[in-house]
């Protein structure tokens, strides 16, 4: 490292933050006006949404490539490297809490709300309002089927979900291999294992889409089919969203590897993405157990 390690790199002015904020605003405002479909703001919303989205993509890319460049110019001391690690670590733990909120909702509903509505437990009197409603999970008939028709069937955990579990677990392993290879400065294998990881991730997403399609077309399992559908789709959907992000990040890393970036010692971006990917993987295991099997 060129700079004397005493010195902590403080970047000079940067337009990324402000642009990012503006795009975030457009993104949010656009989506909101589309959802509320406020008169004639519909198409205006679309424009905002896309403008925001594109500029956000643009900022993210240029921001990260700036960081990469700075790192290449050896501006980062070991301390700066630690800052990034801590940062990524805490970011992931916040993500963990995001999922925790949804898992919490699932448990509350299964363990407390549904039994109460069905006349069990301390608040069983509530059953007065829902004659004939029985406690079961998966919740095939909702308290008021006229408003929320329960699912006809649920996803069989031992087909696509099991396959997806295997895919993701495998992808974690391939990613670890790739990392090992990188540590040994074996670039070809790094790239190969990494590419394989991307493929596995993409396949996972593909099957997730297939599963959703089946759920909607054949199983009658939708967002609207009562609280089972609600919890099922918010948890799997939110996770799917993270897998998509993860896959994109993996692709970026792959590109950078192919461009000959990263060294055996210095490859934080790679590690950060790896952490993220393993995190998404762990969440999935939780999903597989609590959403699909139990």
């Amino acid at each position: 490292m060129q700079v004397d390690p005493q010195e902590y790199y403080v970047p000079s002015e940067s337009y990324f933050p402000i642009v990012a904020s503006v795009s975030l605003f457009c993104l949010a405002f656009g989506s909101a006006s589309i959802l509320t479909a406020a008169e004639n703001s519909g198409d205006m919303g679309m424009i905002l949404l896309f403008a925001g989205f594109l500029s956000l993509i643009f900022v993210v890319i240029s921001w990260f490539s700036k960081v990469a460049a700075e790192s290449r110019d050896g501006l980062y001391s070991a301390q700066m490297d630690r800052s990034f690690r801590w940062g990524m670590g805490w970011f992931i733990s916040s993500e963990l809490m995001f999922f925790a909120a949804f898992f919490g909702a699932l448990f509350y509903i299964r363990v407390l709300a549904v039994p109460w509505l069905a006349g069990e437990g301390e608040k069983g009197v509530s059953h007065m309002l829902w004659e004939g409603f029985v406690n079961q999970w998966p919740l095939m008939t909702t308290p008021d089927p006229s408003l929320f028709k329960g699912p006809d069937q649920i996803v069989d955990p031992w087909h696509i979900p099991l396959l997806n579990t295997i895919l993701l677990l495998a992808s974690s392993i391939t990613l670890t291999f790739s990392h090992k290879a990188l540590k040994l400065n074996n670039r070809n294998w790094t790239a190969i294992w990494l590419a394989l990881t991307v493929v596995l991730g993409a396949t996972f997403m593909y099957y997730q889409v297939v599963e959703y399609h089946e759920a909607y077309t054949e199983l009658g399992l939708t967002l609207a089919s009562g609280v089972y559908g609600s919890t099922f789709f918010i948890l799997t959907g939110f996770h799917g969203f993270h897998v998509t992000l993860g896959t994109l990040m993996l692709i970026c890393i792959l590109v950078r590897v192919l461009e000959g970036e990263f060294t055996g010692e210095k490859h934080f971006a790679f590690e950060a993405v790896a952490w993220y990917w393993h995190f998404v993987d762990v969440i999935w295991v939780g999903l597989f157990v609590f959403v699909y099997i139990l």
Binding site: F148, L223, V227
Partner: peptide, 27 residues
Amino acid sequence: PVLAGVVTMMLMDIHFETSFFNAAGGG
């Protein structure tokens, strides 16, 4: 993040017919 989670569930209930906070659907 938990706050973000709860407003997200609101969003779903409002626009995507979920029933997290609606007893009629088991919420």
